[in-house]
């Protein structure tokens, strides 16, 4: 098992500071503290090679959990073991095997080509020449950034930079990878490429990956297993399909009508989501879908009818509520 967390709690003692220099000095002497519970008695286990999505609204405790797992924060209570290490001790052997990509923090040297940062990381992580060149070669081919590595980082676009950030985070082929919002601010094409890359990396290196994201697309495409957190607590841990089944046991039927109808004529068991002629959107329980569809086709003149799973975002919203 790669990661095991038992009864992890993390309180932040946030002190309220007055503004200004005098306020700072004052707050050195007298401080008002406020306790904020960020992670509340969380337990889970992750096997080697798993790719797990961590989802939840802003402030749910996702990033806090990742920071505890990577040793950036020490837990208020509970036990964490990552690759057999206690993260917050930040032992060298531990740090050499993990990586943490923070979508909003950069490790690349801004004024130099990304390659220079890669070389530095090579020394920091004691990577042998051969291995280093192979990995950089492979990663840059996967991400299609081969020529970009020699360009000053500040001249790259956000997406290009993010790709280079990923390479910098992966040159030491970490066994455990934490990705905090890796696709933030990227366009759809770039998002897709990054996702493909992450999946590829997960497979070929058998790396354990935890990923947080606001984009459900990331999670939907990448993660078989999701952990949903809200207000510091795990409210769901399991397969994505099970999550949908549990929280959204219905499907969406969209009908394009040939002629206008009176919605009151519809079967009572059908819940109308929206009706703007000619488009009628219905929410139907899984077990009634076939029945409902055939009834509609029989009773109304329709041009088109589609049956879809509910939007994952809707499911998640439902989970939070």
């Amino acid at each position: 098992m790669a990661i095991s967390v038992s009864h992890l709690s993390k309180y932040y003692q946030v002190y309220q500071k007055e503004t200004g220099f005098l306020g700072s000095i004052k707050s050195l002497i007298v401080r008002k503290y406020k306790e904020v519970l960020a992670v509340d008695d969380v337990s889970f286990e992750i096997d080697t090679g798993e790719l797990v999505g961590f989802i939840g609204p802003n402030g749910a405790g996702k990033t806090t959990t990742l920071k505890c797992l990577s040793g950036l924060l020490y837990p208020t209570r509970g036990k964490i073991s990552v690759l057999g290490f206690t993260p917050y001790e930040r032992k060298k052997e531990f740090l050499k095997q993990i990586s943490f990509v923070m979508g909003q923090k950069n490790q690349l040297w801004w004024d130099l080509p990304a390659l220079d940062t890669l070389y530095l990381n090579k020394e920091i992580y004691d990577i042998p020449d051969n291995k280093f060149h192979n990995i950089v070669e492979e990663l840059s081919k996967l991400l299609e950034v081969k020529d970009l590595l020699k360009i000053q980082v500040k001249k790259l676009s956000l997406g290009q930079r993010m790709k280079c950030e990923l390479i910098a985070a992966l040159v030491h082929s970490p066994k455990v990878l934490f990705l905090d919002e890796p696709t933030i601010g990227l366009d759809v094409i770039m998002q897709k490429k990054l996702r493909e890359f992450i999946r590829e990396y997960n497979k070929s290196y058998q790396a354990t990956i935890i990923l947080t994201s606001h984009y459900m697309g990331d999670v939907e495409e990448l993660c078989e297993r999701v952990i949903v957190v809200n207000q510091g607590k795990i409210i769901f841990d399991g397969k994505l399909s099970a999550l949908i089944k549990r929280y959204a046991p219905y499907k969406i039927i969209t009908v394009t009508l040939e002629e206008n109808i009176d919605p009151k004529r519809l079967d009572r068991s059908l819940e109308i989501n929206s009706f703007i002629y000619p488009r009628l959107v219905l929410k139907v329980k899984n077990e009634n879908v076939n029945d409902a569809a055939s009834k509609i086709l029989k009773n109304f003149k329709t041009r088109d009818l589609t049956i879809e799973d509910v939007n994952i975002e809707d499911v998640i919203r439902r989970v939070y509520e």
């Binding site: 993990i98 950069n106 920091i124």
Partner: peptide, 12 residues
Amino acid sequence: NGNLSNFLIKPI
């Protein structure tokens, strides 16, 4: 700005 984190997770 929290960039210190980048160093804390590296053996440096």
